[in-house]
Design a protein around this nucleic acid. Structure first.
Lengths: 127, 127, 127, 127
DNA sequence: GTGGTCTAGACCACT
DNA sequence: GTGGTCTAGACCACA
């Protein structure tokens, strides 16, 4: 389904969440579709089931999926996904800091913009 | 000098780092200027000296300050940091993660771009 | 696993680092192999866990090991370290200092060269 | 007389020692010649007198100079300089470790030798 | 005075 | 169980 990077500093459950989010947002996992069971996924990732469960629970909290006890876990309708504006603001803050730091490191405004654009470009190329 | 948010999810030493970096980048702390000693700062923040030291050491590793044992800690010359391509790459990575996360949060590519642009615009307005 | 010399002028965490590096380089600890946990090693060395952790973190920074929070610490693949030109430069610096010091100690350039050659010779003999 | 690098991790008194040693070994400071007084040198280096004094004391211990109370400090006869064989062995150990590490980093024996030679070459070029 | 190392112990998040 | 952070101290070498 996807791969984890143990060497990353990100915790494993976060990586699982991020990967699943990506699959949902990109439409690979469609609305209403059933996710693999905790056991299945934990086995295929060779990861502790608790870790997968934590990822599922957090994704449910954020509205991406819903868990039906005894039946399985399913992708929510798009409209269910809450826009976590607080989180968005936090990220905006981080972005600001990064850009400020780029300036401090000697990049011109233009260079910084080019760098950021490059990231968007990479992203859309990959798709 | 600045305030910490003990309730934040960010660890204290990271907050110390970010605050100091901010002060350096914004020019409040000038090149060559002496930072408060580990003990001073730890006292004024009512935080353990080890915590401040950890922040100082990491900032030194990133090139923002240099530590002279027995003398004190000083802001590096900008020229020391510039051309630090490794650091720029690291920031690029952070930016990537931020942008990825915006997508996760449901923003379209276009919305994310607009948000990032806004940051650049704010920056140039402020000047 | 190994022994520390508390009387040494080297700090404990450096001794831990050097010993582990030696074990990794010599192949006693193989790629991917799990290192003892911080607590285990600190206990078996009768040393504070923080001290071991410091050694582990520095070794991670240098690329020799990688740390997975909650899982353990593992020896990096060699390929991760190779081509680490920054590290090579750092070693070159150390070598320079050593050679400078030999000169300080009164060895002529020729004597120093002979000594260094001897090391290469030993190495190839041992093979 | 010479310059210090505060950003170096070497302690200042060690830098003073090393510089003076270099001047003595290279013959710039000749046998019997008077060294600058602690005050003079500490002033010209803008350094704490205690620091210079510590360097002088240590150099005396190693036989490079001798201190005559009330008169000044002088360069020893060459024959006085003790060959600190223990120290030489220690350095040899460090060199061994460095070279081992170079091998581990993927350098061939030949590449390592070339690198080490380069250092000797630089040194003699500078003279 | 400065930073550097270390101990003994605590609490936390993650696996 | 794992590592990560933090506190409240202590002692050291250096300036």
């Amino acid at each position: 389904m996807f791969q984890l990077d143990l060497k990353s500093r990100k915790s494993i459950y976060e990586q699982v969440m991020d990967n699943l989010k990506e699959l949902i947002i990109s439409g690979v996992l469609k609305e209403g579709e059933k996710l693999p069971s905790v056991r299945e996924l934990s086995h295929s990732l060779t990861v502790n089931p608790n870790t997968v469960q934590k990822a599922y629970r957090e994704l449910e909290r954020q509205g991406y999926i819903y868990i039906v006890s005894g039946l399985g876990t399913f992708v929510s309708e798009k409209s269910q996904i809450q826009r976590d504006t607080a989180r968005i603001e936090a990220i905006k803050g981080e972005l600001k800091n990064c850009i400020k730091e780029l300036h401090y490191l000697g990049l011109t405004d233009q260079e910084a913009k080019t760098l950021v654009f490059g990231i968007f470009k990479e992203g859309s190329d990959r798709k």
